[in-house]
């Protein structure tokens, strides 16, 4: 367990350090999510009532699009300069490597949700009625998206046209996460029916499932990437 955690921390720090140095998340993922929010507003005819009602869905679909970019980049950086071979030879625990990748994606997704949250609050005119469920469901949904991204990013990497393969594999898997996250967010914004806690519980279950599956299959994936 200690080895797993050590590997997770090392890989997470490596990925975040690379992101910090290249500023890729800040320089193109953050503008991307803001553009998506603005485009959705135009697509919905900038009707304030409709925009408020659609906020939860728009927010999470934007996070999923951003997650596709981040997961793709997270896998692609290891395809260069023999990084993959170095990781294989490093002796670091594969499960730890998976958890480290998931943690780095999680941190980046949380980072992009700060400007995204401010963007939808200002442009769509919504406010958080139930902060508790809003924050908890966002954390759990982000965990599920990050863990599945750490599984699917490497799966689609290395193929010709992998940019198209990843969304094809990854987005259908994220659909249950998006459904549950949207319902929870609607509840947090005061639109949903009921408390939304069962949707939040479902998000926790999905996150745990992806973490367990990723940990169990990490060794096979690392060996045959």
């Amino acid at each position: 367990m200690r080895e797993v955690l050590r590997a997770a921390v090392m890989v997470c720090r490596k990925d975040l350090r690379m992101e910090w140095r290249t500023k890729a998340t800040i320089s193109y993922v953050v503008p991307f999510v803001l553009i998506v929010v603005v485009l959705f507003a135009f697509a919905l005819d900038t009707d304030p009532v409709l925009l408020r009602r659609a906020t939860a869905g728009v927010y999470w679909i934007t996070v999923l699009f951003a997650a596709t970019l981040i997961a793709q980049r997270s896998a692609a950086i290891e395809g260069r300069d023999g990084v993959m071979d170095s990781l294989r030879l490093s002796g670091l625990d594969p499960a730890g490597q998976f958890l480290g990748k998931a943690a780095a994606i999680f941190a980046q997704l949380l980072l992009i949700q700060i400007p995204l949250g401010i963007g939808v609050a200002v442009l769509y005119g919504v406010s958080l009625e139930r902060p508790g469920i809003g924050v908890l469901s966002a954390l759990l949904a982000t965990l599920a998206v990050a863990a599945s991204g750490a599984i699917y990013g490497p799966l689609a990497a290395g193929f010709v046209g992998s940019e198209a393969v990843l969304p094809l594999l990854y987005l259908p898997v994220l659909t249950p996460v998006m459904m549950a996250a949207t319902r929870s967010a609607e509840s947090a914004l005061g639109f949903g029916v009921g408390a939304g806690w069962h949707w939040t519980a479902m998000l926790g279950m999905l996150g745990a499932t992806f973490l367990v599956l990723g940990t169990l299959t990490a060794a096979s994936l690392l060996e045959h990437r």
């Binding site: 599984i151 799966l155 193929f159 393969v165 594999l169 599956l213 994936l221 045959h224």
Partner: peptide
């Protein structure tokens, strides 16, 4: 259906099959 070495392609497909 993507081109690739048998074991690599099979491993990736197996993981997707288990998750799905």
């Amino acid at each position: 259906g993507l081109p690739g070495e048998f074991v690599t392609r099979g491993t990736r497909a197996a993981i997707v099959g288990i998750v799905s």
